[in-house]
Simulated assay, not measured.
Amino acid sequence: MLNEIEEFKAYTDKPAYKCSGKRDLSFLGRFSFEMIMDFIGLNRVLSIIARGYMFRNGAPDIDYARRALCAWSSIPDKKTAAPKEEWQFRTDFRDLQEEFPELVDKNGKGWFYRHVHKIEKFITKNSDIMSKATLAKAEPLRKKFDDAWRDKVKQFQVSLYSPDTKGAWVLRFDDILADALELGPLTDKTFSFSEDEKELIKALLPDGLTYDVAETVIAYCIANKPADSDYVILPVSNFDAYFGNTSFSHKWLNLFPNALLERDKQSFGVCRVRLISNKMLSMLST
């Protein structure tokens, strides 16, 4: 979560599909089933991708980043689909294959589309080492993903200035590109705590919350604290994917003691937190 450059590679390089047992979900890569099936947490994914392409040559190139997002999101048109009118949103961006061969193939299959269907095939092929819960995901991915993703890609292209209600409360490429422009180039924000700082963290941890998890979350808060606020928005779904399960959102996040991590109760649907230990606050201000 701290090394944005490595995270970008996880969303754009060729994934490795492997599994060592029923509890191993590493074949999902930096995604969870919730992200794939409900499309939650994609704002961070798309922002990382946009930033990776927007600043490749130094100065920001917004149009280039937008084309990269389209290529990554591409899904082939149905064989029975009528030709798109100029005013209609496209979802098949095979024409971008030459510019972004790593993101879309000549048949219009974008990176995310290919990844999801390879996951579905991997689960089916290795059913003997999959849990019942994992096996149950394969059929919905095979039968329902395409239509749902096609609708989502159309939503991505809704303009910020759309006068219709369809433009409200949806994730759009315009939002992603604006965030990317503000956040700037990808960086590696990894750093280490001193031994005294590690002992401070460990002293505040309850049973059931491991130091590695706490260290990652605290380091993320310190590295991503905005200049004008003590609160940091935690990308909970992306943390689930990072840790390889949903224990973070379903268990570990609620175990953080108030003496260490305070959650904003009026956060308008996002998880906003701040470190409130005096020593942690002094770390934040340095």
Rank of each mutant, 00 (worst) to 15 (best):
K79M: 08
T80K: 10
P83T: 05
E86C: 00
R94V: 00
R94N: 08
D95T: 02
L96T: 00
Q97H: 15
E98I: 12
P101L: 02
V104H: 00
N107Q: 15
N107Y: 15
N107K: 15
N107A: 13
G108H: 00
G110F: 02
F112Y: 09
F112G: 01
Y113D: 05
R114F: 01
H115P: 06
H115L: 12
H115E: 02
E120V: 14
K121T: 14
S127H: 08
D128R: 11
S131K: 07
K132F: 11
T134C: 15
A136F: 08
A138C: 10
E139L: 13
R142G: 04
R142T: 11
K144N: 15
F145L: 06
W149Y: 15
D151C: 08
V153Q: 05
Q157L: 07
Q157E: 11
S159M: 04
L160A: 13
L160G: 11
Y161N: 09
Y161S: 07
T165H: 06
G167S: 02
W169K: 14
W169V: 03
A178Y: 03
A178I: 04
L181N: 07
G184D: 05
K189P: 01
T190D: 04
F193R: 04
D196F: 08
I201L: 15
L204Y: 05
L205K: 05
L209K: 05
L209H: 07
L209M: 07
T210S: 11
A214R: 01
